[in-house]
Design a protein around this nucleic acid. Structure first.
Length: 478
RNA sequence: AGAGAGGUGGCAGAGUGGUCGAAUGCGACGGUUUCGAAAACCGUUAUACCGGCAACGGUAUCGGGGGUUCGAAUCCCCCCUUCUCUACCA
């Protein structure tokens, strides 16, 4: 499947260049490394309401080339000018070919009809005469179609390499140190000198077992035991219940996805090497519920009265984390498999940044109820994800490690994913337009668990926040 | 996993090589009629790309891809998928 481009007909799948996958680039590690305490503090409103007009569609590349180049530069995308120039060259060629192909085909179609008429009236000689011309036309359309397919393929591959453009409010910067701290909340707990990091606490109370995971699977696949397993389940239920009362509909999507879904949300081809792949059935284990949840709306024209879409789901997430190493990935800080509750919104373009604010507010309310000190960061251009236009990271204070841990990332993708997904609606006046997609973790489990254990430890147990007591069926560990 | 039958426009459902982008019905939208509504009647009813300021014109799309032909919804091949029976299993 998905092996060949059509000669004249181009299916959606082919237009997306799905067969381009194997030769694509692979970028760096999935997760950003974030040395703690390095961000500079600034004070800004949650978001600046700046009209969005960016989408990496061909029309935008053509009409607003300078803005695109500026955006790519802010995102620290090195080969932007060369790639954009190449895409525009290919585009000109593509349009020539299309026009030439279409007019030849139009003539051929007319002749075919005439031949039909001649055959019926018994004029075989007349038909044969016309066939000479159709043979010429056929040769022309075939070669034009073949070249067209080649040009489209090259163009699509280049387009897939381009990241989304950053929103105007995104700060300049190269790395984590350049992110802006939008606000901080909660007091950091003072722990005694004998306070333990979570990787010692889980052993002390025998609630999470890494060695056992190594035996069964390998590094980065811990086994949660007893109260540890129950705490996980409690957090998942708490997060899902909170999302539901915030208006999100709960979904249970598949956790293996096909190639088209990977392209739809932008994991492919960008992060091919970071996903577990089952070659036998050509399926990918999801790195986040974002992929299946957002792809529910792939190839859809959503009735405007159903907007905004708000959905949530709990899934395990799988990340190969190739190239990841060092002290800051110890314990629960980075895993190959972890659980996460995700929230997804799909909105009309004019409402997406307000929606992003409500998502961040929702995530903050979770952290507040859990009593965890946190801060909200606005990521700089160089530290943002490939597909995002604006990303807020939320980090909790891990008291025994003495560092901030990223527990959530909430992003507005504007039309970047929607363009790939073909996720649209009928705007006023009946015009079909791309929607905006957004998502956020609410929340990722392991680092929440780490912070809960560390921040709430006493010499002989861990006192859990009140909100979890009924969910857990216990109030303390140990 | 084996055998069989299917996949056509928002839905239902015709169409087995030549004005078929596709009959018909339903639904939806607009209009005539009406005090208003129903009924009836008339009209409209997809997506993408190319050309054009636009009106509009062209091309493609009948699950997906490839092939045969001057011409394919219709014939051939591969794949996906749905249903039924059998097998198996949570």
């Amino acid at each position: 499947m998905l092996e060949h481009y059509g000669q004249t007909a181009k299916s959606d799948a082919a237009q997306w260049g799905l067969n381009a996958r194997r030769r694509e680039i692979s970028c760096g590690a999935w997760s950003r490394s974030r040395p703690e305490g390095a961000a500079r503090v600034v004070f800004l409103p949650t978001f600046a309401r700046i009209p969005s007009r960016f989408m990496l569609q061909l029309s935008v590349l053509r009409d607003q080339t300078d803005l695109v180049l500026a955006g790519l530069a802010k995102k620290r995308y090195a080969t932007g000018p060369a790639d954009v120039a190449a895409i525009l060259d290919l585009d000109q060629r593509r349009r020539q070919l299309q026009t030439s192909h279409d007019s030849a085909q139009a003539e051929a179609n007319k002749l075919a009809q005439q031949i039909g008429g001649l055959m019926k009236s018994g004029d075989k000689a007349g038909a044969e005469t016309l066939k000479i011309r159709t043979a010429e036309l056929k040769q022309h359309t075939q070669s034009a179609a073949a070249e067209l397919a080649q040009v489209e393929k090259e163009q699509q591959q280049l387009l897939y390499k381009l990241p989304n453009l950053p929103h105007a409010s995104v700060p300049e910067g190269r790395a984590a140190a350049d992110n802006e701290v939008v606000r901080e909340h909660g007091a950091k707990p003072e722990l005694g000198a004998d306070a333990l990091p979570h990787w010692d606490l889980i052993k002390k109370y025998d609630i999470i077992d890494f060695e056992l995971g190594v035996k069964i699977t390998g590094a980065g696949f811990p086994v949660y035991k007893g109260q540890g397993a129950r705490l996980q389940r409690a957090l998942i239920n708490f997060f899902l219940d909170e999302a539901r009362s915030a208006g999100y509909t709960e979904m249970q999507p598949p956790i293996l996805v096909n190639e088209a879904s990977g392209y739809g949300t932008g994991q492919l081809p960008d992060k091919e090497g970071q996903m577990y792949h089952d070659a036998k059935d050509d399926l990918y284990l999801i790195p986040t519920a974002e992929v299946p949840l957002t792809n529910i709306y792939r190839d859809e024209i959503i009735p405007v009265e159903k907007l905004p879409i708000r959905i949530t789901g709990h899934t395990p997430c799988f990340r190969r984390e190739a190239g990841s190493w060092g002290a800051d990935v110890r314990g629960l800080n980075r895993l190959h498999q972890f659980d996460k509750v995700e929230i997804v919104q799909i909105t009309e373009p004019e409402h997406s940044y307000a929606a992003l604010d409500t998502m961040v507010a929702h995530i903050e309310s979770l952290l507040q109820q859990l009593g965890l000190p946190y801060r909200v960061l606005r990521l700089c251009g160089g530290d943002m994800g490939f597909t995002s236009a604006l990303t807020y990271d939320l980090e909790v204070w891990s008291a025994a490690q003495g560092r901030w841990l990223e527990v959530s990332s909430a992003s507005n993708f504007e039309t970047y994913q929607a363009n790939r997904l073909k996720c649209r609606y009928k705007a006023d006046g009946g015009k079909t337009q791309l929607l905006h997609t957004l998502n956020g973790s609410a929340l990722a489990l392991p680092r929440i668990v780490a912070a809960l254990l560390e921040n709430n430890q006493t010499s002989d147990g861990i006192e859990l926040p009140a909100v979890l007591h009924s969910y857990c069926g216990f109030s303390r560990i140990g």
